[in-house]
Deep mutational scan, measured.
Amino acid sequence: MALNTPQITPTKKITVRAIGEELPRGDYQRCPQCDMLFSLPEINSHQSAYCPRCQAKIRDGRDWSLTRLAAMAFTMLLLMPFAWGEPLLHIWLLGIRIDANVMQGIWQMTKQGDAITGSMVFFCVIGAPLILVTSIAYLWFGNRLGMNLRPVLLMLERLKEWVMLDIYLVGIGVASIKVQDYAHIQAGVGLFSFVALVILTTVTLSHLNVEELWERFYPQRPATRRDEKLRVCLGCHFTGYPDQRGRCPRCHIPLRLRRRHSLQKCWAALLASIVLLLPANLLPISIIYLNGGRQEDTILSGIMSLASSNIAVAGIVFIASILVPFTKVIVMFTLLLSIHFKCQQGLRTRILLLRMVTWIGRWSMLDLFVISLTMSLINRDQILAFTMGPAAFYFGAAVILTILAVEWLDSRLLWDAHESGNARFDD
């Protein structure tokens, strides 16, 4: 018995066209964080690309023209004298008006014999932002004059995390709450300039795509075929072959399989920071003279006294001054041990922890910024005066060393310790 099946006739004509040209192939790229070699397709503007294995951002879609970056830099340069030299806060102490600005706080630190601690604050609040705007201006002028731009481009990517104007702005709020127990506070004209400078700096850093600047100024022929001998440069993120001198053909720094002496430098910085954190938390970090009496505060006791007036601000200072430094030390110690013992479990967790400490590390400088600003506000000789204690130097040095330890660690070593050939990683 035959089955009668109805015929289905399409209502619209289906047209099949042959592909007349070869589909576009992607360029081969190595991930600078996990060293995976993959094919990167062509990316349009405002599109980002991520590593298929570790999800690290390979290409950032946010990109401004150099002219727009230069305009932002010149605007920031105009704001800087007002943000640093004009009063941020006014207080009335014992019937006398006192003005506080950024430069005055750094000068008070240096004047009291601790120039190293003052230079830490100076670099993060004044030096690094000033280098940022002058570097962008150098790129703008240098591109037109045919100057060598490689050193500036190499420095810009590392400079971003040292620009800490946003953290200093939080420190202004913390210092205001600490001082309000002794005097009446009012915002100064410099505060508005400083807030504007923070906003412009944040926007500029978020749109400063150094890798795209490398592509514009020093374009290189990408690798179009897969080759395990391809290496990625950690300076400019170019994937290719080393030249005859073993250097990256684009930025001219040595092109090595792994960062040289990464573990040794990381261990040295980490152990030194552990040693410095002990006096930083045991010795007094601030000293207040009130009517001839002397009151010393460690980091913890200062947080407890701050909690009596504002528990939320005390929580912020606790996280930045105690929780973050010790968390960074514990995480980095764990990561280094996992590399030495070739741990194969929990790779995803370790990668996330490394990215976390990379982002939060700079916030530990908050305590030094609060001390710097408070020193310029309260300084009335023996009637009422505020000065920093010996722990300030140890704390600042420990924070900087932990930042350097994270920067010096080559994250690809975590993958080397893991089993080879993993296309995915999980716990």
Rank of each mutant, 00 (worst) to 15 (best):
A405I: 05
L366V: 11
V210W: 04
D416Q: 07
P325M: 02
I8Y: 06
E419W: 15
R158T: 15
H418Y: 11
P81G: 06
F395E: 00
L156N: 04
A83V: 06
H46Q: 11
C34A: 00
E296Q: 05
I106Q: 05
L300S: 03
M365N: 08
C31M: 00
A268H: 01
M304A: 05
T358K: 09
M365F: 04
F82H: 13
R17T: 09
T298W: 04
G188A: 06
G85Y: 06
L93E: 01
I299V: 07
F318D: 01
I383G: 01
A280Q: 02
W267F: 07
L145G: 01
P390H: 08
S338T: 13
L197Q: 03
Q186A: 15
M103F: 05
A71M: 05
I311E: 11
R260P: 03
H237T: 06
I253F: 01
D114R: 06
A115M: 01
W140K: 05
F123C: 01
K13F: 08
S286K: 00
L88A: 05
W214Q: 06
L213D: 03
D114K: 14
L130S: 14
R158I: 13
L337N: 09
P151F: 02
C124M: 10
A398M: 03
E42K: 14
V163S: 08
R62E: 04
A73S: 09
G293Y: 04
F238D: 09
L79V: 08
G246Q: 06
T327I: 08
N101L: 01
G240N: 06
T15Y: 13
E212V: 14
F326Y: 03
G396I: 04
G26E: 14
L69M: 07
S338R: 13
V170A: 15
D227N: 13
K229T: 08
T402V: 10
L368P: 03
K265I: 01
E212L: 15
R380H: 02
V133C: 04
P10Y: 13
Q344L: 10
G20Q: 11
V210Y: 12
A128Y: 01
L409D: 01
L413H: 15
T117F: 02
M1W: 00
S65M: 07
W162I: 01
D410I: 00
P6D: 08
L306H: 00
K229M: 07
P325D: 00
Y218Q: 03
G171Y: 00
V203D: 03
A280V: 04
R231I: 07
T387M: 08
D381E: 05
P325L: 01
P24E: 10
G113K: 15
K229H: 05
L234D: 13
L94H: 01
R250T: 12
G302V: 10
Q7G: 11
S48H: 15
F393C: 14
M164T: 05
P242W: 05
Q264I: 02
I131Y: 01
Q220L: 07
L132P: 02
H418F: 12
S119Q: 02
R62T: 09
L159T: 03
I43K: 14
W359P: 01
F386W: 03
Y182V: 11
A18W: 10
C31T: 00
I91A: 02
A392I: 04
F341P: 09
D243H: 08
V232K: 09
I126A: 14
A392K: 02
R150Y: 03
M356Y: 11
V329K: 07
Q55T: 13
G292V: 10
F333M: 14
C233Y: 00
I371R: 00
A56R: 14
G20A: 07
H252G: 04
L271E: 03
L306S: 00
Q33I: 13
Q264T: 01
W64K: 11
I319P: 14
G293D: 02
C343W: 15
L132T: 05
L130K: 02
Q47A: 12
